[in-house]
Design a protein around this nucleic acid. Structure first.
Lengths: 201, 201, 201, 201
DNA sequence: TATGAATGAGGGTTCATTCAT
DNA sequence: TATGAATGAACCCTCATTCAT
């Protein structure tokens, strides 16, 4: 119960890669549609159109499935932020921040149900969720951006966790009228960073 | 799986009230100490020194136990905020906000493990967590305070969820050096509310 | 995988004692009739007319079932030997030995199939089978008898293992014509102990 | 579950013979090192450096693997006894017997772990273990020796089973101080055969 | 009212075996 | 001929809940 499990073997053949993808898709679908309570390995295998044995050939246990989903989400987030930073290089920090919030929110809106479960019902692992290479890369990216913007590098970690918490807390559980969410979150993050308030709203 | 279950009967006799309290204590203890995975009704009854049958006399099912803990937490939060508002009636909004953040953080620091589980591993119920009388009262209190402080009443709901998200996201998963957490969260909330930044830190 | 499991709880009520007995009976029956391959906990529970959950209330796992059967066998053996020694106190060692062999063989003939499995298919536990209080008592009894008979106390352990091996090896796998088995085994044991050969055969 | 399976095909080419040998080696190694619980066909194939499909080309099923190991052991025993009888042709029966016991014990001491499993955890087959050509040859050899030594031919079968039981029962489960095991077993066998006790010990 | 023995659906995981490549 | 991905029956065990006492 101590290590976050890794995929058992890297799928090398085409058939395998397809199976792994199908399993992950099915897992995400079930998690999003029915919640963690309905998420069991037999169901995932069935929904993936794969034998239960095949599932266990690529994932050593149930947790590894969820871990893989998490990993995928982290990678998507990293890619999105990189894109945003590249596209908004010349803008003032306040606007860059807003653009990043926009991007992350868009990412989460795409798979609301899944992220709700991923965030809220992740069965407790021992390891703090933030101690993986993806999150480290994310932190590094943010720290660089903060420095370039004349802000405090050291706030990167807290900024990320703050953003994550707000996205999940406000988007996932929020009322459906959460239209101005981008502004809401951006204002809060800006407040934390000490950026000036928007001119007027 | 559709309604949040209520306690089956109000304990009217002294013995009953004692049993209910013991059960709730045991539940909180197990959740805090061992996590949701170890939280099962037989264990709770045993730890409470009560027969499993008795547990089901006061709680219709497992979820009702967790719901009761949530309720208790909501009530403590409400009481704490009331106290803070009464004590800081004459201060500027920024300071009142900081005092409230302090109080809520103190509340959570007291039972870190429990709140982590309560927040993160609460099995999905259908009902949005915010639709109960306690949360409504909390929202009302905040709305009143916002109005008195010359701010936007309508932001009460978002403010509360934001505060909750940040407390959990930063305190519960945070690094141990979370000393300046009060300032961090207060700054973010102030940013959201449009309050001026602190003079300097 | 290191300790031989003990019964989970001592059955205190009449109903429980009955359940435990039924489970043990069923386990013995299945082992004897169908072998270890067919011995699974669900089948045992079914054959015992008991829910699988009840089985696990009294036995922490599958091995504990087999261990309990072993224990029972050891106790029966001990009782039988005590009886024989009491009944043949005045006879010469050679005859006492023969009487003991007779008794043990009779014990095994009663439940041939079960003992075959118990002896041969016991899934490897880490603990050497002989390190339990029952076997210690058995060894003690034999050592005393050897001393009283003017023989070497130290041979008790080997004598017992030798007897056990021969009973199982010759009776359980033996040809059906194993009529003179008593003499065969007694002669071998007597040979080991240095007792004079029978007058004539 | 009714017939002891034979190797599916005799390996005629060099490559095949090598594969079969590697598989058998791996099987013996796993059995000796990790016990029957860890003995599964996929693991054997992997340890042998062979595809699981190849394993099933030479062995129709798992049992065939164990059967082959048994066969190998029988052949080694037969060869060893032949050698001993040839070398001790002129000695008295008692000494020849002791020499045979020595040889068999030496054989077993070489692969203690393996034989322990082979003897104790062999999953029940229907066929009595003694009804194969190797055992028949062994019995024949013993019967001839008994006759030459002026003893009862008919005791060959029992003698063999007795020897086998004692070797396994005393050596495999025995205490480490089993130094005098040769004498112990020889005395017992001599007792059974009616040979005179050793002069003095 | 309190108890706790009994239940059994359900779920994670293994592994002998097959068969397409 | 050799491979190893795929399979799924089977099995051990948990735990929420009931109900006879």
């Amino acid at each position: 119960m101590s290590r976050i499990p890794q995929p058992r073997k890297a799928p090398r053949q085409a058939r395998s890669r397809h199976a792994v993808a199908a399993i992950l898709e099915a897992a995400a679908r079930i998690l999003a549609r029915d919640g963690y309570a309905a998420f069991n390995t037999n169901r995932v295998a069935e929904e993936a159109g794969v034998g239960i044995g095949s599932l266990y050939q690529y994932f050593p246990n149930k947790q590894a499935l969820v871990a893989a989903l998490h990993r995928r989400h982290g990678e998507e987030t990293l890619a999105a932020l990189d894109r945003v930073l590249a596209d908004s290089a010349s803008q003032p920090p306040r606007d860059q921040l807003a653009a990043m919030v926009d991007a992350v929110l868009a990412l989460h809106r795409r798979e609301l149900g899944l992220h709700r479960v991923l965030e809220r019902e992740w069965p407790a692992f021992d390891e703090p969720p933030a101690s993986n290479p993806r999150d480290a890369a994310l932190r590094e990216r943010m720290a660089d951006w903060l420095a370039e913007s004349g802000l405090d590098r050291a706030k990167a970690g807290t900024l990320l966790r703050m953003a994550d918490s707000l996205v999940h807390g406000l988007l996932l559980d929020g009322e459906p009228d959460a239209a101005a969410l981008e502004d809401t979150i951006t204002d809060a993050l800006a407040g934390f960073l000490g950026l000036p308030a928007r001119a007027h709203t």
